Structure formats: C-alpha cells, structure tokens
Amino acid sequence: MGKVPYIKFAKNCVTDLMDTQNELESIYPIHEYENWFYNQATGLLTFSTGDDELNFKYVNVGSFSKKFNTWKWSWDNEHTLSKVKDDILHVKEFGEKHGYEKLTGGYFASSEHEAWEFTAITAKLMKGIGAYRPTSEHLLIFMVLTEFVDNETAKDIKDLYVECDKHEYRRRAFVCSHLMAREEVGFEEAFDTYENMELYDDDYQAWCNECEKIRRREDGWNKKSMEFADIRVVCEKCYFEMKEINLGYK
C-alpha cells in the first residue's frame, strides 16, 4: 500500500472531524453557553452561563495570524505551556514519518482553511472528541478537545492552582513565611522536587532551616511548629525561585 498523499489525508481528517463535531455538539451544546475560558495551566476549557459550567481537557494545536496569514504549531511556541502542547509532538513525529512537511515546520505562511486541516489531523491522531476555536480579532487559537470533565473533577483540578501577580496562573505550593523574604534561609522540602514535575496527590511544600529545627524539636508538625512556620500559599514558579536562592545554603 503506497503513501497516502497529504491533500487526501487532510481532506479525510476534515470529514472525520465534521462527524465528530456533530456528535459532540449533539451531546454538549457548547455554543449555547455565554462565556468560554481556557487555562493552559489546568489544561481545561470551560464554557459557562452563570454558575452552569461545561469543562473539557484540551490541547492547543496552534495559532493562525489573520494579520500576517501565518500558522504556528503550539510545540514551536515558547509562550504555550507544556501542559497543553507536549502531546502535539506526536503530530510532528507522524509528519516526519510520512513526509508531510506541513506537520513538521513550526511556523510558515498558511490560511485559516489549512489551520482547520491541521486541527482535524490532530483530532484524528489524538482521538479527540471535537475541536474549538475561541473568537478573536487577529490571532485564532485552535484546540482539540480530548475529554469531558465533570464539574466536581474540574473544581478539584482548578483548586490546585493559584493566580500569581508575577507568574499568572500556576500550580499552588506551600512555603513558610520566612521563605517569602527571598533570602538565604535554607530550603527543606517534604519530598525532592524539580520544575514541571507531574504531581498527583501531593503539593510542593518547603520551609526554612529555623522551621526545620523547631519541627524536629517538636517531633513533627504540631500547633507550635505550624504557628512558627506561618505557612503561605505561592505559585510553583515562585517556589522554585525561592529554591534557587537557597541552593547550596546550609
């Protein structure tokens, strides 16, 4: 069996996406909601009207500039968080394997029609349940919806993230108040961490050397040691900035 020409492959993917989209919208009336909001940190796309919400996990396929008529794959965009773009590398790998150049170049002249083709191809390869393109005047973001998320689960996911004045919306972390000064005070952790690690049931947790002394003296965390630590909530980026300051400090 010979190689399927790219044009034919893309056309077939668009047809499949149209069927998939019709099925999605027959179950979830996404266009009937008044608002939409996507968050790269949580990887959730939310439709809402008042307190009524509809949530999906999504991947960012890429963006089309109406001003410059150019396409940029999300995996080539440094401003797109890994949470919503890492899986798109499978599309690039598929393109490399089959010699489909449109799927391997990061940024190039294109059209909105092609942007929908790229989205359809991504949906096909990732077994997406639909697609969405938020309304925008100049830059169009194309997404593939990968999974419906019930409201309770969505709330649990969103509760793990905090809005930071410096770093926008990030995974939450807990530190003692003494680390907030951004000075060398020591950095003890509940477990070894590294940036962008996948956390499940745990949160980033750190405290200074003085807190560690009192924690040991009190044989663990109790009312006295917790009062001294005066735990604060920060974003994960702030957490690792504090950790960097204290690297090598004893």
Rank of each mutant, 00 (worst) to 15 (best):
L24W: 01
R182A: 10
A131C: 08
M18E: 11
A131N: 07
V59I: 06
V14D: 01
F148V: 15
K213N: 15
D159T: 13
P5Q: 13
L140F: 01
T193A: 05
G186A: 06
A41M: 02
K213C: 13
D87W: 01
E112I: 14
N55P: 00
Y204R: 14
E195F: 03
M143G: 05
W73M: 00
Y161A: 08
V233D: 05
R217S: 15
Y132W: 09
Y161V: 10
K158S: 13
A229C: 14
D219E: 13
E163Y: 13
G95D: 03
L160Q: 12
C211E: 07
M180N: 03
G186Q: 08
W36Y: 10
I231L: 04
K166F: 08
T119L: 02
K223E: 15
L54K: 04
V149F: 00
E117D: 06
S26H: 03
R182G: 01
S177K: 07
F56C: 05
T49L: 02
V59F: 02
V91D: 01
R182M: 10
L81K: 13
L160T: 13
A41D: 04
V91Y: 01
E183K: 15
I27A: 12
T153L: 00
F118K: 13
E163P: 00
T135K: 13
G248H: 09
Y194V: 12
T49I: 03
G62D: 05
C176F: 01
E32Y: 06
A115T: 10
D150S: 06
D159A: 13
K72L: 03
A10W: 01
M1Y: 11
Y58G: 02
T104R: 03
S65D: 06
E53G: 03
V162S: 08
L139N: 14
S225N: 14
A173I: 15
K57Y: 03
L24N: 08
V61S: 01
N209Q: 10
Y239P: 08
D19C: 07
A115W: 04
L160H: 06
G248C: 09
Y6V: 00
K11R: 14
E34Y: 03
Y249S: 07
A154R: 15
C13L: 02
I231N: 05
H113R: 15
M180D: 05
V61L: 00
T153C: 00
M226L: 13
K3R: 10
V234N: 06
E210C: 04
Y107C: 01
E188Q: 06
E168S: 06
W116R: 06
F9Y: 12
Q40G: 05
D52V: 04
D52I: 05
K66P: 00
I141L: 09
L247H: 07
